[in-house]
Design a protein around this nucleic acid. Sequence first.
DNA 1: TCACCTTGCACTTTTGAATGGA
DNA 2: ATCCATTCAAAAGTGCAAGGTG
Length: 486
Amino acid sequence: MTPSSSTAGAAEPYHQGNIRLTLENSDLWRSFHNLGTEMIITKPGRRMFPHCNISVSGLSPYANYVIMVDMVPVDNFRYKWNKDQWEVAGKAEPQPPCRTYVHPDSPAPGSHWMKQSISLLKLKLTNNTLDPHGHVILHSMHQYQPRFHVVQADDLYSVRWAPFQSFSFTETSFTAVTAYQNSKITKLKIDHNPFAKGFREEGTHAKRFRAHKGQPGPENPAKKLRTDTEKDPEYQTCAGLFLLCVWHLLTWMCLFYLTDYPRLPYDPQREDDEVPLRLKQGPNLQDEHMSPWDSEQDPTHSLHGDAPMDFSSSEQLVPGQATHPPYRNKLKNSVPIFKNVLLTPLSRSEDFSRLPSPPSAESHRVDHRHYEPSVDVATVPEREVTRSHISVNMGTPQGRPLDYSVPSHMPLASKNKHGLAAPPMYGHYTEQPYGQWNGTIPTQYPTSTYNHPHRLTAEHGGPHHSHHHGNVSEWSQYPLFSYSCW
DNA sequence: TCACCTTGCACTTTTGAATGGA
DNA sequence: ATCCATTCAAAAGTGCAAGGTG
């Protein structure tokens, strides 16, 4: 796994670049990813399974951090399930309102986060664009990838001005669906999710189900799926291995019990290894250009595709300030990494005016006198860009809003037409091969050109300001940030 | 007709209040 | 009075099938 994360170096004594994030249940994630993970989204919200479980290290033990997750579109396509594989079904729909899930323990000292793994079990996904509960809103039949943010901040208010780092793991990408498409994924979910236990075996539920339907056969679809799968020779081989493993496991348990050893800790990863999941690679790998799993084939098409997928390690290390991702050498006219973009929505700015000032007000305070209507930006998230793409046209109807955040030396917000400071808006960006940026902005932005500020001209080339601050807005618990991207 | 979405069902797990004993 | 363990009901989380929608 290569770092697809930002390089948000901080001036604080504790070097931000040392932060490591590890995906705890990566084996399970890989099992799903090999088949093409699907996540159910419902109107009231649905948990993810597998859920994101991460561990973090390298934090300052006494500094406070906020842990957040958002979902980033993997590409710009909509998909459909055709027989036994995912196919591109057209262009992606406009992104719904962007939400970020904040871990309920936030903010907490680094020692708290590093003490044990961080479970994001309660994160819920919904397809309800008007969702009032703060769940993460996704489009069905679109592919997403969770992105984790570690923000050094003492409270949720100061998140907006705090240094942060972002991480993502390729194997956590998934297709949002309202009903499962791939029966193998269904089986995997049933086998591993405790709540779906009732669909596993010839249990009470299956009997009741048959009784209810008045039919004698294995009417429970889960059972039918199981019996179908059992006919597969590959499954039979794996099942044999599985039974062998179970036998070994029981033997070991007996030995431990008889020798009065401490209880064996539950190790889901080992259990996963023993489950016969070595099924075929996802058929979507066949199409080099249009498949949802292109990241394995053509990294330039993937969201975080700066290197081929590597499952040898699920750990990510954010390099220090001067380190750049490998895609840099693809650029002809590369400019520094700018992962920050500040957008100024012109609506609902009144809400923002109620926000407290940033902690270090002197360096961040908005100077309305120097506001320039056409310059209100910064850059592209997590990517290098070519200079020719720094300026983009505004007002494209199908344009997607930009990911944002704010370098410390840039104004956090500007006056809008009402004379009020407006908040940054969280969104997404359209990415082109080789990290070029082709982002556009919704029509609600009236100015005609989205100019790159003078700070990013050639004279200021080279690695971007390492005193890197950013923010990750629109976290769901904070209604002031409930901005729509459109 | 088709693809996708919503709803209600039966089941399981989790949660939290109530209870009782040390 | 406090703490801890247990019990139990309610709430929440599952996948499924049927029906609805565009």
